[in-house]
């Protein structure tokens, strides 16, 4: 803010109200989770709300909206790592095509549909579980 030589007054109260409403929306989404077409929709909804809240906090409470271009230089590497790490782990941990035979997942557990890799019948289901 001081970069511009004058003091800005972002609409703090308005931002605060948005954040509270968004928190309420997350709560309502959880209460209505059975009405979502699938668990993925609930995840997308509440994470989108979280991203909106985070944007409000960063842009206004942390004043990033009023800062100069140094913010991009400083935050770009962190953003790359934040996205890069899950992407790097994703193929081998989250969507592996091969059967991970672990004692936690006995055969009956897989047959019950809780495991979407190698099925109990020996067939091969989709590797992308969720």
């Amino acid at each position: 803010m001081e970069n511009h030589g004058e003091h800005h007054h972002p609409p703090y109260k308005f931002i605060f109200m948005i954040l509270i409403v968004c928190t309420g929306l997350s709560w309502i989404a959880d209460e209505l989770k059975d009405r979502f077409p699938g668990p993925g929709w609930l995840a997308v909804t509440v994470l989108a709300i979280a991203a909106m809240k985070a944007s409000c906090v960063m842009l206004y409470f942390m004043h990033l909206r009023f800062e100069r271009h140094w913010k991009y230089v400083l935050l770009a590497p962190t953003f790359i790592l934040a996205v890069g790490l899950p992407l790097a782990l994703f193929p081998d941990v989250a969507v592996h095509y091969y059967d991970v035979d672990v004692p936690q997942n006995p055969v009956e557990n897989r047959a019950a549909g809780n495991y979407h890799g190698e099925t109990a019948e020996g067939g091969h289901a989709s590797a992308a579980h969720h």
């Binding site: 913010k71 790592l81 934040a82």
Partner: peptide, 27 residues
């Protein structure tokens, strides 16, 4: 802000790993 940059990497490593682990752990 530089410190917060390191903090973002610190927590996104945990959160990213958590998401990936969770996606890869049916049940």
């Amino acid at each position: 802000w530089l410190f917060l940059g390191t903090e973002i990497m610190f927590f996104t490593a945990f959160i990213g790993s958590y998401i990936v682990l969770r996606l890869g752990s049916p049940g």
